[in-house]
Amino acid sequence: MAGTLVTALLWFSIVACGLLAGLYFTFSAFAMTAFARLDTAAGVAAMNSINRVIQRSLFMPLFVGSSLSSLALAVIGALHRDEAGACAALAGGAIYFIGMFVVTMIFNVPRNNALDASDPATAEGEALWLRYRKEWTGWNHVRTLASTAALVLFVIALGGRP
């Protein structure tokens, strides 16, 4: 697993995992609780606004770039399992890609789309908001833990390199 490219991928992934773990932690620790204290229409409007703005922000290149770098580290780790740090890179990459990227695409994004299409002024819209907060936040906890665990594993992988 030698090479400047792997070292660069590890450093980028460490920083990216830290930034995204912090973002996800914010929502898990207090943002969703704050939104729940707003009336339904205001809470939905706030979350929808965040979901629209985040798609056109620096978050997106970081989200995509970190997903690709973690996948690359998982593959490199798998191909070089006998080298120092490779198993940690493999585990970190797999945990991040599945626990952050795949979870986001399968569980969080569809809920965001449903929320955006809802009318919070209706009984169905209010019920969706209640369900959204519980389910979306639960999956966000997974993203937070996966990003944090991957960060630790990438640090271990970097520390194990010659």
Rank of each mutant, 00 (worst) to 15 (best):
E83T: 10
I98S: 03
P110L: 13
G99T: 11
D116G: 10
S118R: 02
A84N: 10
A84K: 03
L115G: 01
V102M: 08
N113A: 07
N108D: 05
P110D: 07
E83P: 03
M105S: 11
D119L: 05
A121I: 05
A84Y: 05
A88I: 08
I106D: 00
A91H: 03
L115S: 06
G99S: 11
E124N: 13
G85R: 08
R81N: 00
N108W: 02
L90W: 08
F101E: 00
F97M: 08
V103G: 02
S118W: 06
I95S: 13
A88M: 07
G92S: 06
H80K: 12
I98C: 12
E83M: 10
T122H: 15
A88W: 05
L90A: 09
F97W: 07
H80V: 02
R111Q: 14
L90F: 08
A84D: 07
A117G: 01
A123L: 11
R81D: 14
F97I: 00
A91N: 03
P120I: 15
G93C: 01
L115E: 06
I106A: 09
N113H: 09
G93H: 06
D119P: 11
A91P: 01
A89W: 06
A117K: 11
A88T: 00
A123H: 14
D82V: 13
A88P: 04
A88L: 02
D119E: 07
H80D: 12
T122Q: 15
L90C: 02
I106L: 15
L115W: 04
N108A: 15
A94E: 12
A86T: 13
E124R: 13
M105C: 13
V102S: 05
G125I: 00
E124I: 04
P120A: 15
G125M: 10
